[in-house]
């Protein structure tokens, strides 16, 4: 067994934390784990890409283009930008809540219509796309920063995802600071439920 997740988003969205939770859960499941992340400029609002690979025998920190089993998109434009990381059989978990790039915010560039982005992804891979409003769900759970916990909960409910829901939640709650445990627990559950309702197993 080998499984590759490509996690994409924007600096500050908690992409790296999510990848650590998934990676540690994979390690505790007895898998070998190899990951790669691009740091540095991320803190300055740039795109973030994290590759997580686990399985019986993985060593490469990178996956072939198109080879990932799951694209976990924390941001709609970033999901579309990285769509070639997967193939027609891969799953896509796409957060629909945008983070506007600075040039969009300042009115120099346009942010595309999100419905069109979803339509585009669906046109490539209609059966495997799951969408979620992770930021909105996180706000209703208590705080927008918990969007990554919503995404991890949603991943746990994704068809064919090899790591167990309980383990993911356990590792998540060990990773976040004590005072944010309740928020993250709630956000995780809401993410899981939102996905389960969308894709009855």
């Amino acid at each position: 067994m080998k499984y590759t997740v490509q996690i994409v988003g924007v600096g500050g969205q908690g992409v790296l934390l999510a990848s650590m939770v998934l990676g540690n859960a994979a390690m505790r499941s007895g898998y070998k784990v190899s990951m790669s992340e691009i740091h540095g400029m991320a803190q300055r609002g740039g795109s973030v890409l994290c590759t997580l690979r686990f399985g019986d025998d993985v060593i490469s920190p990178l996956e072939a283009t198109g080879g990932a089993d799951l694209l976990m998109g924390f941001e709609p434009v970033e999901t579309c930008r990285s769509i070639s990381l997967i193939n027609k059989n891969s799953s896509i978990l796409m957060n629909l809540d945008p983070v506007y790039p600075s040039m969009v915010a300042a009115g120099f560039e346009e942010y595309p219509d999100i419905d069109n982005l979803v339509k585009f992804v669906r046109s490539l891979s209609s059966d495997n796309l799951m969408t979620i409003e992770a930021t909105k769900i996180a706000i209703s759970a208590g705080k927008a920063v918990a969007a990554n916990a919503v995404m991890i909960g949603a991943v746990a409910a994704t068809k064919g995802f090899p790591l167990s829901k309980n383990l993911l939640k356990e590792v998540l709650l060990e990773t976040v600071p004590e005072k944010f445990k309740d928020l993250n627990s709630k956000a995780f559950d809401m993410g899981f439920d939102a996905m389960s309702n969308q894709n009855p197993l």
């Binding site: 924007v10 609002g45 740039g46 795109s47 283009t65 198109g66 434009v77 970033e78 579309c80 930008r81 769509i83 070639s84 990381l85 997967i86 193939n87 027609k88 790039p101 040039m103 969009v104 560039e109 346009e110 942010y111 595309p112 069109n116 982005l117 585009f120 490539l124 891979s125």
Partner: peptide, 12 residues
Amino acid sequence: PLDPCTIKLPSR
């Protein structure tokens, strides 16, 4: 791989 996105995406 899936085809790259044809919609113009803002730079980041």
